[in-house]
Design a protein around this nucleic acid. Sequence first.
DNA 1: CCTTGATCTCAACCTGACTTGAGCTTTCAT
DNA 2: ATGAAAGCTCAAGTCAGGTTGAGATCAAGG
Lengths: 156, 156
Amino acid sequence: MHRTDLIAIGELAARTGVAVSAIRFYEAKGLIEALRTGGGQRRFLRADIRRVSFILIAQQLGLSLEEIVDELARLPAGRTPNGADWTRISTGLRARIDAQIAALQRTRELLGNCIGCGCLSLKKCGLYNREDKAAQRGAGPRYVLGDRSGEIAEVG
Amino acid sequence: MHRTDLIAIGELAARTGVAVSAIRFYEAKGLIEALRTGGGQRRFLRADIRRVSFILIAQQLGLSLEEIVDELARLPAGRTPNGADWTRISTGLRARIDAQIAALQRTRELLGNCIGCGCLSLKKCGLYNREDKAAQRGAGPRYVLGDRSGEIAEVG
DNA sequence: CCTTGATCTCAACCTGACTTGAGCTTTCAT
DNA sequence: ATGAAAGCTCAAGTCAGGTTGAGATCAAGG
């Protein structure tokens, strides 16, 4: 505690590589919280560096900010999160990573069998019939990569 | 050739699971082309079912529509693409898949070493210092997951 | 004290990937 | 020949995840 324990938004930004505007945005979305100085400026805990880092990692794994809020909600309310807390949270991420890897491996294989032969008959090769909830993130006609699951394409 | 060789937009939509509006959008973006009837309605080749399917697969792998345009530009101009054409194109996708799998595996490992111990000291564990151009797709503060590469976070 | 850099708020704008709605026309089965 | 279903265009809206800008205030070193 020999140093200032609270950091300004600029420092949090510098420490995490995230833009100041993004940090304000995260606060508005409920991902992080800030104390305020008498003058109204934000002051963060050092632990928030860790918290923001977690947000970045989770984003890389394809979680939306909304999902990340849910994950972070599992952190302790009052006290600074410790190693055990992060471990608990990261377990969920690990499962997600494993699922993504599995999905990619399946796609890779199907790509060989299916596009490789030039047929691209989706009904037959099932490149879409997979229940690929995990890879559903990121664009694509919404209702296809999700809602549908029944019959899809078949090349005449 | 015993069947109608041209299909309407509604049929292309039904065959691929993509919304009609999305197909028009793809045409506007140059991903597919359509012939027109005398009355101005679009008519697609059966091969376009395959083409749209390819678009969906590529999207799942994180390519933007712009990137997909580039990939598709490698298809033969006049004739209907054949199996060999698709194989050639899909090779690029395979490389991308492999890269993504590798990146995820690295992340998985780092997650164990780094979050597992609770430190989340990014400079030390390098969860960010990776040159993760592939996973850069999809959200995240733009300039972090890309432009930067120098010093990042270090938990005090 | 004073200045300079950091912050503040709020509203507006941006990109990507589509969707929606209005108003009008084409197709095609009966 | 006709009427419902499907298609057309064009402008505007949506959502996520931020960024940008204006105008005002705060914090801290000299």
